[in-house]
Simulated assay, not measured.
Amino acid sequence: MGLLGIIQLWHLRDKISIREIARRLDISRNTVRRYLRSETTEPSYSERRSVSGLDKYSVQLSRWLKAETTKPRKQRRNLKQIH
């Protein structure tokens, strides 16, 4: 059960005040009010996709890591050496 479901359950069934719900969940009273007014079942967030600086090296890094897993433990390079 998501956060919105908990808020609605406490407020409608258990008759807990908005202030008490906000205190228990450690969120703003305005957020609790907004969740109670909304008609959605769960808040939806847009997927954030930012370009990483490692994207252009991801293929090469994957090959290196696969090659390292086949080596014996003592012969593997550590993260500092790969960097």
Rank of each mutant, 00 (worst) to 15 (best):
K74F: 07
H83D: 12
I27R: 01
N30H: 05
H11L: 03
S58N: 10
R76I: 07
V59L: 13
I82Q: 02
G5A: 11
K66I: 07
K74A: 15
S28A: 14
I18L: 05
S52E: 06
D55Q: 09
R37Q: 15
N78R: 03
R33A: 07
Y57Q: 09
D26F: 01
P72F: 09
R77N: 06
R73I: 14
D26S: 13
R48K: 11
N78I: 05
Q75I: 04
R33G: 04
A22C: 01
K80I: 09
I16A: 05
Y57R: 09
M1R: 05
Q8V: 05
W10A: 09
Q81Y: 01
E68S: 06
E20V: 05
Y45R: 13
Y45N: 11
I16V: 15
L65Y: 03
S52H: 10
L9R: 11
A22P: 01
Q81M: 07
L54E: 02
I6H: 00
T41L: 15
R13M: 10
E39V: 06
E68N: 06
L12E: 15
Y35C: 09
T31L: 15
V51R: 13
A67K: 06
T70G: 03
L12P: 00
N78T: 12
G2N: 15
D14S: 05
N78D: 15
G53C: 06
T69V: 08
M1W: 02
R49P: 08
A22K: 00
D26C: 03
L3N: 01
G5F: 02
S28C: 09
I27C: 04
R37K: 14
L4V: 07
L79R: 02
S17W: 03
Q81S: 10
I16P: 02
L25I: 04
H83F: 11
R23S: 15
S28L: 07
W10C: 03
S62P: 00
I18C: 12
S38M: 13
T70S: 09
V32D: 04
L61S: 01
S46R: 11
G2M: 04
G2D: 14
R37L: 14
K74S: 14
L54Y: 04
S28M: 04
K80S: 08
